[in-house]
Design a protein around this nucleic acid. Structure first.
Lengths: 135, 135
DNA sequence: ATTTGTGCAAATCGTTTGCATCTGA
DNA sequence: TCAGATGCAAACGATTTGCACAAAT
């Protein structure tokens, strides 16, 4: 694992605590990732980094706020955090509860309506849901 | 208010209880609607239909299952149920927590990738998030 | 008569918060 | 030094569930 965590935090202007460095290392070492709070917590424990669930949530929220992560809502009881910040869309495998990037540039939105008067677009989410075909 | 509830239920093969009829009447009387469990409960009480929250949820879930409603996840603590079942997309006003349909046929997805081998697409959600522009 | 829905309250799940204690700058 | 991060457990809000009762077929 590379150790880019400290650097990431510095650039984002976040204080570099032991836990944050460890979590950032896990998140940003291996390219684009989709984690849930739960899976990140499990990974941290596995890597012998002792972190509480509260800190996982606080950290993920801070990272989103700081522009290091984006949040992706699947449904009311499932969400992911995505380390890829550039514009892209997702495909979700219902059976496996797995989220995958769609290659950037493939899927494309046409005729995006203008943001209504006095508003600005802060995000355009596309989620293609698939499941194992029954046929 | 028209009273199409009973008919809707019959078509969907759901038993027509008093509460379900009332909720279906509320939901399907006035064209396309976006409700939350909470707002629907409030509306029901206002219309002097006594329903428990549990029944609201049970009913909404049954309706989704039966193809009368679709669920739209905004984030981990906000979701709506949409009475419009035909293919269409949404714009979400963060400030007001309000969801609005995008006129069908306007926004269009290009180059939708094929569903991966052995899977079928069960939904394609597009959500444009806007907020009051700060400038 | 039998199956299915309902209400209530308690349980559950994911997430957030208060507070005392640590720790990085 | 001291603002800010952590851990813990308790609080929280949204949703689900168990069970006794009521209503629909």
């Amino acid at each position: 694992m590379t150790h880019c965590g400290r650097e990431k935090l510095r650039l984002a202007g976040l204080r570099a605590s032991r836990q944050r460095i460890a979590l950032a290392d896990i998140l940003f070492a291996e390219g684009d990732r989709h984690v849930s709070a739960e899976s990140l917590h499990a990974e941290a424990l596995e890597a012998d980094v002792s972190v509480s669930v509260a800190t996982i949530y606080n950290t993920l929220n801070k990272f989103v706020e700081a522009g290091l992560l984006r949040e992706i809502a699947i449904d009311s009881s499932k969400r992911f955090f995505d380390t890829k910040m550039s514009n892209h869309y997702h495909i979700y495998f219902e059976d496996e509860e797995r989220l995958v990037d769609i290659a950037p540039g493939v899927l494309e939105i046409r005729n995006m309506p203008d943001a209504p008067e006095g508003t600005e677009v802060i995000g355009a989410d596309i989620l293609i849901r698939v499941r194992t075909s029954s046929s």
